[in-house]
């Protein structure tokens, strides 16, 4: 999608903006990562704790 814009005949300046201006996509990827880290390291559900128990210890998350 982004690569198409380079052949669309837009002025170089707006092409640059089309790529650089993606703060929401970066924030989205960050949020995706944070949700997973929370699930693995912090989710207080007992079954989740038991499943990830050894990983929580190995990754030095506070566990018990």
């Amino acid at each position: 999608m982004l690569s198409n814009s380079s052949s669309s005949g837009l002025p170089a300046e707006s092409q640059a903006k089309a790529v650089v201006a993606s703060p929401m996509q970066t924030v989205g990827a960050l949020a995706f990562g944070l949700v997973i880290i929370f699930a693995v390291g912090f989710m207080p559900v007992e079954a989740a704790h038991n499943a990830a128990h050894d990983s929580r210890h190995a990754l030095a998350f506070p566990c018990h």
């Binding site: 990827a29 960050l30 995706f32 990562g33 944070l34 949700v35 997973i36 880290i37 699930a39 693995v40 390291g41 499943a51 990830a52 050894d54 990983s55 929580r56 190995a58 990754l59």
Partner: peptide, 12 residues
């Protein structure tokens, strides 16, 4: 769990 943590940290 390790692969999941890896995916989470990799996304960040």
């Amino acid at each position: 769990a390790n692969v999941s943590a890896g995916i989470g940290f990799a996304a960040i």
